[in-house]
Nucleic acid binder design. Sequence first.
DNA 1: ACCTGAACACCGTTCAAGT
DNA 2: ACCTGAACACCGTTCAAGT
Lengths: 214, 214
Amino acid sequence: VNRERQRQILDAALALADERGLDSVSMRSVAQRVGVTPMALYPFVGSKAALLEGMVDRLLAELPVPDPELGWRERLATLARALRVLARAHPSSFPLLLARPAVSPDSLRVVETIFQALSDAGLPIDQVPRLERMVSTFVLGYAASEVNGRFSPGTLDTAARRDQLSPAELPVHHKAAFWLDRPVDWDAEFEADLADVLAIVGRAAGDSPGGGAV
Amino acid sequence: VNRERQRQILDAALALADERGLDSVSMRSVAQRVGVTPMALYPFVGSKAALLEGMVDRLLAELPVPDPELGWRERLATLARALRVLARAHPSSFPLLLARPAVSPDSLRVVETIFQALSDAGLPIDQVPRLERMVSTFVLGYAASEVNGRFSPGTLDTAARRDQLSPAELPVHHKAAFWLDRPVDWDAEFEADLADVLAIVGRAAGDSPGGGAV
DNA sequence: ACCTGAACACCGTTCAAGT
DNA sequence: ACCTGAACACCGTTCAAGT
């Protein structure tokens, strides 16, 4: 009903998640931060589940839209990098983006931005939705994996973990040990993956096999 | 301590998630299903968070390892399809795979299978970990998105959703409306994406630009 | 080693009531 | 339209005790 109040509540929930983790977001804690009784939230957010959905909408509202003057490659790359920045700014809430369908106006606008870039790439219109799902799945999955620790298990006991099993059972782990124990340059890896994904789009759009530039 | 009992508890939790959703998995409900008091679980699982981690280990233990006689492409494709089957069998628990680092012996074995295939593809060893993260991120992200509804918002109100915003704001959504409103063949889409991802691996491994077969 | 029972500090949500 | 307060049926986990 009162849109301004709703935003205030969702931002309080987001701030709470940033400061103390997603587990500490409860109707009671959010209400307290807003300075109100838990029940006073219900007319604005409906339920705890809806509160979490609302948080991802606020997240997407923060996402800058890439300059439409840019070429489609730069537009997709800019959007992908912005999503990764968003993940680092809100590591506890970001993984929610992968957990629920995107239905709000703001999320539709993000999808439209990807649609537009794919269309500009020269992709046949019937291929656009498939490639949008592929690109968004990769970017969201990568950024979420990075911030929730899926890529960096346990913090620096990579070797200990590997030694749970015998070298005979994990030959390639042992062959790659040098690179597995070394800190990874995540920025560089993300850029390399991004280039690979954009190459898929380019090829689906009918680039010459060698991969053309734009 | 007693490994057999631990497995029994984790399987009860998994069954509960399958039948009534992840939210209904509680220390109390799992204990009841095992026929014991909630506190009796603690020596075996440690905490609720550890219980959830244990569930994903059990999930991975269910995953069939592809025949090592197969070529690397078929091995990766078989593993990817098996993960998707797993997601459909355990839609509530599967998304946990993307939420936490993989540290158990069983999960290491899955990573090793991918490492092996990438290595056999002819990838330089320093590229193997990066491509493993890329492949697993895509496959887990896709399968999770499929089962948690990220790809199918709201069930059949795709048109209504689109009409929240004006056609002028969502030009490509409207141009692609025919394909967006049509039911998607997810099997076919997954296979197409898989082929694209395997092509990236092949190219990183030094395939001829046109893409060779194996 | 394995389990129970009572207790503590929390949850989300309903309902009736106030302004 | 917006908010409160009491209540209900739950949570995860600690602690002391039993065998």
